[in-house]
Design a protein around this nucleic acid. Structure first.
Lengths: 136, 136
DNA sequence: CTAATTGCAAAAGCTTTGCAGCGCA
DNA sequence: TGCGCTGCAAAGCTTTTGCAATTAG
């Protein structure tokens, strides 16, 4: 059994053709952050005629199962990326739309403290930095 | 001339009825964070039959003029609030949808440093904490 | 075999746009 | 008066949903 099949079974999803292929696209793309439509078009380029509704449904299931992370960067479509277990945030270049990942324990700690100060427990967060190439 | 008229003129917008009323709703609402549709409904409650298209157009103009800030909290409609000149971020309670504002120079400083480390200048950011009431 | 999954098409939710008429400066 | 602004309706874009047909285990 292929590793993808196994991954799907482990989270309780049938190893169907569309699900396996969507997982492959997410694994193989050098561009880690893909919209549902990006994935839909990649599949069709490869001769897989999967419906866009299926792409959305599968991505939602994958997110619930913890296989992918979904991000809403401002307006526009949501972007999905494989969950590699390493939590990170993103900076988006306003010129090129390039997405760079980063990680900061420092910020996470401060967030938890701020939430506590207001009487809350931190469940999660969404942090996006909008940046421009540093031209020096 | 009313203060609202003045505010509008100062940013180069004609002091029209819809614009004045939308500004008033934003000023008077104790709930600072309103969607275009929230504002639309508040206006109609007050007998002002402004079109929803106008609400969107005016809010976009207000944002461009720096009069309001627009936030995309995850999915759902964008929320607008009056720009009182004090930059702040938000935490949203996942139980009650309550929105609490907070400010952290510490986080801003770290953000600038992280952007610089990756070769970028920080232009802006979006930070939302998702929280739950701290039940102790 | 049978419950889960899929594709299609239609609809939903938010936002923008074209256009003819109205209103502020 | 003239250009900007407005309301309406239609369209755009992303995402969800109903349903009959298909498929995995």
């Amino acid at each position: 059994m292929s590793p993808d099949n196994k991954e799907l079974k482990e989270v309780g999803l049938k190893a169907t053709h569309p699900r396996i292929k969507i997982l492959q696209v997410l694994e193989e793309e050098s561009q880690h952050h893909l919209s549902a439509d990006d994935i839909y078009r990649r599949l069709h380029e490869r001769g897989m005629d999967v419906g866009i509704a299926t792409v959305y449904r599968v991505l939602t299931q994958f997110e619930t199962a913890g296989l992918v992370c979904r991000h809403s960067f401002d307006a526009g479509p949501a972007l999905y990326e494989l969950n590699r277990g390493d939590h990170h945030d993103h900076m988006v270049c306003v010129d090129t739309a390039e997405v760079v990942e980063f990680q900061s324990d420092e910020i996470e700690t401060i967030q938890r403290r701020i939430a506590a100060e207001k009487g809350f427990d931190l469940i999660g967060h969404s942090l996006v930095l909008y940046v421009k190439p540093n031209n020096k």
